[in-house]
Design a binder for these strands. Structure first.
Length: 714
DNA sequence: CAATCAAACATTTTT
DNA sequence: TGTTTGATTG
């Protein structure tokens, strides 16, 4: 036994984990799904420090999500008696932000530079396009945004981009102008955070050497998702002597479309002359039937680093493959099965429904909703992305940095204060001619001409500025949402109650931020808002079925997983076949999906599915065929071909089971599990299902599927 | 300026 | 099919 294993913190690591944790120098860890990756990462940091191999300030640990970085910090705090504050633990973007804040002058940025999120970036691009008088039909803002981000992620400034054809040349001109605008306004987008700090370290030898000296141990999570620029950034920081500990899984690389480059794994081995990756293949999550299925599917990919997952747990249940006639039946199956599982003692929150595309959630939500089964959909708008919050943040940004034209435009006339397109055009003109910001132009216009609205707006911002100057963060926010008129505006709006609540919640967010980060500055909070859009997760304590895309499920696990829509064209998605290695990436996505399940996995496919308002007939996904049949139990519900979607010519079975289809008389008083008392308003045939309309006094009319709705007579 | 309407459109999205 | 975007209109 390795003497190192005497340390309590290394107890019950398996041999591979132990080898990874205690390895010397740089390493690539190939960490399969559910193999204890996070544990290895945090234990290594703790081990490095406890054995005196590294001091806390010598550690940098990089993740992709705030969630992952928080989890790492929490676990470390539990393992180490010391404060983890000396370490740099955070996301790529968070750490770059930190670097640029500390050296803003060297990076050529104003002290209070602001961060654009995707939406801000898009708005800024639209402004550039307008200014350059560019036809947005030929150059859609999204295309421009992709072009800019792709190039930044590849480390290329506009001057370095190879643009030969007229189209890319024009795109590149827009890129250049966009960057100029950002620089003028003192804002950086997400990709810019990376590129700017990379350039800072490249150009500034003193700084580079300082950080290379400081960080002796650099650890990276989800290494397969790094972009080329991120990898270059890591290598730069690593320098000649530090150790780079990269943990990742090439089989779970599903973000190529966002610039992730799996090739970095092979490149790392080559660059650092590493012998072979350390493979963590023991899975602590799933039964072997599930793992065997995952292994079999992913084996169809080429160019893998290569690994098979195994488990000490038993075979477990077979996978269940359900063939539904259509998406409605698929959804109904999920509901019934979820209810059964729940009745058997499973918590709803341990059940997940995964799908390839968000649009698939609707049918499932509808069925769950009608049946009164609690559920939660991941992936909607997050807190800091809500319009009312963005408005409030824009006011705050304007206070911190009046040059921010994006923020200016967002709030100059919101709430409406009589500043129309005409006035704004004049301001815009003045700004362009004078080479000044909209804010400066507005100050001039407000004072000089008789533009009352503008003068009032300028006065308002200035008043808020002086009023807020000495207030603590949360009071600044309170003042801004009040004085700006945002609160009043939403209070008067009919459906504004939620928005008012969110605005008030913003002050709480500020308090929480100040407490957690010990940063009480406005700019600190704004950075936090841009880099951490807020939680996506379910409210703790609420027991609900989890609905999400397969992408969103990465890193999560559930007792039971329903994988819906396993049809050619949907999963693998039809667009994927056009992309290089597209199908292989879809297969990795399938691999991620399968490995989410602990005990039970349902594979669902529907013969016909309503897609974009049209019935589409799908053949079962090739991925189903790639799973050994011995692992699968297949079944379906026999059904007469009377469903309109299946056969247009078949006569509808109107006379069958009429009583069962319409269990309540119209006008009957019923009670619903969720909505309480109501009155039956009518019925409607919806393909295979009959729907019932119930009027609730407070809520209004609701439609339910008769066979699913939990209605009782009263 | 808000409200309404037709047209376009619909993978995935850690920051 | 359902949502989002933009253009038109009162």
């Amino acid at each position: 036994m390795n003497p190192a294993a005497e340390l309590p913190l290394l107890h019950d690591l398996n041999p591979d984990q132990l080898a990874a944790v205690t390895c010397a120098g740089s390493a690539l860890i190939l960490a399969g799904a559910g193999s204890g990756k996070t544990r290895v990462l945090t234990t290594r940091i703790a081990w490095l420090i406890q054995t005196g191999r590294c001091s806390p300030p010598g550690v940098m640990a990089v993740t992709f999500t705030n969630k992952a970085s928080k989890e790492m910090q929490t676990r470390l705090a539990a393992m180490l008696p010391i404060n983890t504050r000396g370490m740099w633990i955070g996301t790529f973007h968070g750490l770059c932000n930190r670097l640029l804040r500390a050296h803003h002058r060297d990076a050529g940025l104003p002290e209070l530079f602001q961060i654009f999120d995707q939406a801000d970036q898009l708005a800024a691009i639209k402004r550039v396009l307008k200014q350059l008088n560019i036809d947005t039909e030929r150059f859609p803002p999204r295309t421009v945004q992709n072009f800019i981000n792709k190039n930044k992620e590849a480390g290329l400034r506009a001057a370095k981009v190879d643009a030969w054809d007229p189209f890319s040349r024009r795109l590149n001109e827009i890129y250049a102008e966009y960057d100029t605008q950002c620089q003028r306004e003192g804002v950086v987008d997400f990709a810019e955070l990376l590129l700017r700090s990379y350039e800072l370290l490249t150009k500034n030898a003193l700084l580079r050497e300082h950080y290379q000296m400081r960080f002796q141990q650099i650890l990276v999570d989800e290494f397969q998702d790094t972009s080329q620029l991120q990898y270059a950034w890591l290598k730069l920081l690593k320098g000649a002597h530090a150790a780079l500990f990269a943990v990742g899984d090439d089989d779970q690389s599903i973000y190529a479309f966002r610039g992730a480059y799996v090739g970095n794994m092979g490149q790392l081995m080559e660059d650092l002359a590493l012998p072979a990756p350390i493979k963590l293949t023991q899975n602590y999550r799933s039964h072997s039937n599930i793992l065997d299925a995952a292994n079999a599917v992913i084996a169809h990919n080429s160019g893998r680093l290569g690994k098979d997952l195994w488990t000490a747990a038993g075979a477990g249940e077979p996978l269940r493959h359900f063939k539904a006639w259509n998406d409605t039946e698929e959804a109904r199956f999920i509901v019934e099965e979820a209810r059964t599982l729940h009745a058997e003692g499973e918590r709803y929150s341990d059940i997940a429904v995964l799908y390839r595309a968000n649009a698939q959630s609707r049918a499932i939500e509808h069925a769950l909703f009608s049946a009164g089964v609690p559920y939660r959909v991941y992936g909607g708008l997050r807190f800091f992305e809500r319009t009312e919050i963005k408005h409030a943040l824009a006011y705050l940004r304007l206070l911190a940095n009046p040059e921010d034209d994006n923020a200016f435009l967002r709030v100059v006339n919101f709430p409406a204060r009589g500043i129309g397109a005409r006035s704004l055009e004049l301001v815009d003109e003045a700004a362009r001619v004078g080479g000044i910001s909209l804010w400066q132009a507005a100050c001039g216009a407000g004072a000089g001409t008789g533009k009352k609205g503008l003068a009032a707006f300028v006065g308002l911002i200035e008043a808020m500025q002086s009023e807020c100057a000495i207030l603590p963060l949360q009071e600044k926010i309170a003042v801004v949402i009040e004085r700006s008129g945002l609160l009043a505006h939403y209070r008067h709006e009919k459906d504004g109650a939620d928005r008012v609540e969110n605005l008030e919640e913003l002050t709480n967010a500020a308090v929480a931020f100040a407490a957690e980060s010990e940063d009480t500055t406005l700019v600190g909070f704004l950075g936090h808002a841009a880099l951490e859009a807020g939680e996506h997760e379910a409210v703790a304590g609420q027991d609900a079925v989890q609905l999400m895309t397969v992408h969103a499920a990465k890193g999560l696990e559930f007792h039971a997983v329903f994988l819906s829509g396993l049809e050619e064209g949907l999963f693998p998605h039809e667009n994927a076949s056009a992309e290089a290695d597209g199908v292989e990436e879809e297969r990795r996505l399938m691999y991620v999906a399968i490995t989410r399940a602990r005990r039970r996995l349902y594979l669902l496919h529907a013969e016909s599915r309503m897609l974009h308002g049209q019935v589409r007939y799908g053949i079962p996904s090739r991925f189903l065929d790639e799973i050994p049949p011995a692992l699968i139990q297949s079944f379906s519900v026999p059904r007469a071909p009377s469903y309109a979607g299946v056969s247009m010519s078949a006569a509808p079975e109107v006379t069958v089971a009429q009583a069962e289809n319409q269990p309540f008389k119209i006008g009957a008083r019923v009670t619903h599990a969720r909505y309480g008392d109501g009155v039956v308003g009518g019925y409607q045939d919806q393909g295979a299902d009959t729907e019932i309309r119930v009027s609730f006094p407070k809520i209004g009319d609701k439609w339910f599927i008769v066979t699913l709705a939990r209605l009782t007579a009263r």
